[in-house]
Design a protein around this nucleic acid. Structure first.
Length: 673
DNA sequence: GTAGAACAGTTTTTT
DNA sequence: ACTGTTCTAC
């Protein structure tokens, strides 16, 4: 079974029960190695259901287990490993185990889960209630408040230190924040609601109790963690409790690809693993099976600029190919034209669009390109950026489901009631108080005091809630259908682009058909929302070829024959929005490295010299960009230097760009189509 | 208390 | 340019 593995991979696959760190450089066969290790464990007699596989995305776990099934061959036919191994993200596994054992730490098993937007909304409500920020000094915005809170929880760090280190401009508001966070915690408990941070925190707490902790530990013999470089301090402590002394613990990752520091992930976890687990075996995978030597020369040089890392130069036996190119473009239009020309040229040569990708730092960096793709009718899927489930109408619809699932969820209730004309936060709260006390909608049946503009809708709403919250509710698609019938007219009152929004809701109804029950549906949408609009249409259709557009973050773990990294200008990579600390700059460097190392054969890095910048106050202006600082001359020499269209000496500020903004807006609207 | 209008501040990556 | 917040007229 082990043929085809190199020595290091084999060592990792055959390792027994002690703590194991696999440092797996980009493209070094990490998934293959993990799959072999799982298959070895099963072959050695470990029951699949006693293996826990923690990955960054559920899809990664599924892909890995599919390969395990393949390795096990006939032995797996009857009961495939893929259906028995515990797999998923930390958050989804936490959810399952908390539903199973949470009552032992006083957690109600019917809890619902708040996503980021919900948590922000709750913080906003509480801030208003507590009258914070009434004074002269501005109080941090809700998103910042949540970032601060979240960092405290995930980094296991007290508020004062977090403020001083990461949010110094908020330090003055420390008392207000303390009050806000105390109330936030209490309020979530009353509502039987957990947010992302709570899932980890309570999982950690569960493992810390004597009997429940032992029960969970006894469920698993082996825990394997993928993308370990992107775990945070809380997750590391959680693993300590799950695998005392590191027994049965395997972690796999690459410190050179740590890109989630903004989410409190710390590269220290992987750098310090051996110190934390005395006797740990470290295996380094350095033979690259992905990229040509020319590309590796370039990517090795880029990452060599990092300050601290597990040093490893990747090498490859692949045949020689073309050098990567570094292309200077006069402006964004040229960049788009150049990238498109190259992509179409390769398609002519037989490389499908799906084998090619365009990567960028921020979601909006691809708008210009999207417009052009749309105009030429070239199909593409975009990953990253604003998601379907974050749009207002989808959140409205889901609020009905959440309220039915958990009538104590005040946020869902406020959102639903707020849809009625004449009902604002105040009225909603009054109406929801008895519901929260009783856990049912009985108080609405007989003469609740409803403002007159809302009366016309009231009877229908009460009937709807009663039906959805009944002991045996209709099937999920029927539930969604009923909600849509009630919601459609209200939606028309409130929003633009109603037909597109209603179509989204129909799609949601179809998506719901695949789920056993409401709780599973809501959990899935919260923990693993569809990553591109095309994902909603079901499994990716194999018939239509499409180009991949992706943020660098969302491209983690993927590979493509040809990769174009666009907007590689200082200010974008590294982003101007970082505070400029050496740690943050290093993370941006790793991000750039992740982008470059996705490529198998062709790599181009482009940047526009002049682009339309929109600083505050001004109506926008052209700014002059410089090449990213991550490609100084000694690194850039690994690239073929080119100018996109040397023959077109463009006049300054071409007027044709004036037509672009309306088109970009059009593209934005198309996001809802 | 709600809803619409006027104003002000800020802009990334995501479980 | 857009979002979020505050102000003001119902």
């Amino acid at each position: 079974m082990l043929e085809g593995l190199n020595e290091a991979q084999r060592e990792a696959a055959l390792h027994e029960d002690g703590p194991l760190l696999v440092v797996a450089g980009a493209g070094t066969g990490k998934t293959t190695t993990l799959a072999h290790r799982v298959a070895q464990l099963i072959g050695r007699g470990v029951p699949p259901e006693r293996i826990l596989l923690l990955t960054f995305a559920r899809r990664a776990a599924a892909e890995l287990l599919r390969r395990v099934d393949g390795l096990l061959g006939r032995a797996a036919l009857d009961r495939p490993a893929s259906s028995r191994v515990w797999g998923g993200t930390f958050h989804s596994v936490a959810t399952r185990l908390l539903r199973q054992h949470g009552e032992r730490i006083g957690l109600h098993p019917g809890f619902t889960i708040h996503d980021r937007g919900d948590s922000e909304d709750l913080l906003e409500v509480l801030r208003a209630e507590l009258e914070l920020g009434r004074g002269k000094r501005r109080f941090p915005r809700k998103a910042t408040c949540l970032d601060i809170y979240s960092r405290c929880v995930n980094a296991r760090a007290p508020l004062d230190g977090v403020l001083a280190r990461a949010f110094p401009w908020c330090s003055e508001q420390v008392d207000g924040l303390k009050l806000l966070f105390r109330t936030f915690v209490d309020r979530k408990a009353e509502q039987r609601v957990l947010d992302y941070d709570d899932l980890l925190l309570f999982f950690h707490a569960l493992l810390g109790t004597e009997s429940a902790g032992a029960a969970v530990r006894a469920q698993f013999d082996h825990v394997l963690v993928d993308e370990y470089q992107d775990t945070n301090a809380l997750q590391a402590e959680l693993l300590d409790r799950l695998c005392p002394g590191g027994r049965g613990l395997t972690v796999v990752g690459d410190d050179a690809q740590a890109i989630y520091g903004f989410r409190a992930a710390t590269v220290r976890n992987i750098l310090d693993f051996s110190a934390r687990h005395p006797g740990a075996r470290t295996v380094v995978l350095a033979e690259n099976y992905r990229s040509t030597p020319e590309l590796l020369l370039a990517t090795n040089r880029v990452i060599a600029q990092a300050r601290e890392r597990h040093p490893k130069d990747l090498w490859s036996r692949k045949p020689s190919g073309e050098r990567p190119e570094l292309v200077t473009c006069a402006d964004e239009t040229e960049q788009t034209e150049y990238v498109l020309a190259r992509i179409l040229e390769r398609r002519e040569q037989g490389m499908d669009l799906r084998r090619q990708a365009v990567l960028f730092r921020a979601s909006h960096h691809s708008l210009h390109l999207e417009v052009e793709l749309g105009r030429r009718g070239i199909p593409f899927h975009k990953y990253g950026g604003l998601r379907f489930v974050e749009t207002a109408h989808v959140r409205d619809l889901l609020a009905f489901l959440r309220l039915a699932e958990n009538p104590r969820d005040l946020l869902a209730g406020t959102r639903v009631l707020g849809l009625l004309p004449g009902v604002g936060p105040r009225t909603a709260r009054t109406l929801l108080e008895p519901v929260q006390r009783a856990g049912s909608f009985a108080s609405w049946e007989d003469g609740a005091r409803v403002p007159s503009p809302a009366r016309a809708h009231w009877t229908a709403l009460v009937a709807l809630c009663r039906e959805l919250a009944a002991p045996t509710p209709p099937t999920l698609p029927v539930q969604l259908h009923r909600i849509r019938a009630f919601y459609a007219p209200l939606c028309e009152e409130r929003y633009d682009h109603v037909p597109a929004r209603l179509r989204d809701l129909e799609q949601l109804e179809q998506l719901a058909a695949g789920f056993a029950d409401r709780g599973a549906f809501l959990g899935e949408l919260t923990l693993e929302p569809p990553r591109s609009t095309q994902d909603l249409a079901g499994p990716p259709s194999l018939d239509e070829d499409h180009l991949v557009l992706s943020t660098i973050h969302s491209a983690k773990g993927l590979e493509f024959d040809a990769v174009h990294v666009i907007h590689a200008a200082d200010g974008n990579i590294p982003s101007d929005l970082t505070t400029g600390s050496p740690e943050e700059i290093d993370e941006e460097l790793r991000l750039f490295y992740v982008a470059l190392s996705r490529a198998k054969r062709h790599l181009s890095v482009t940047f526009p010299l002049r682009w339309f910048d929109r600083p505050a106050g001004t109506g926008g202006r052209y700014a002059f960009a410089q090449l990213t600082r991550f490609l100084p001359p000694e690194v850039a020499s690994a690239f073929e230097l080119r100018t996109a269209f040397p023959e077109t000496a463009r006049p300054a500020l071409p007027a044709e760009d004036a037509f672009l903004l309306p088109e970009v807006r059009g593209a934005l609207r198309a996001l809802w189509n």
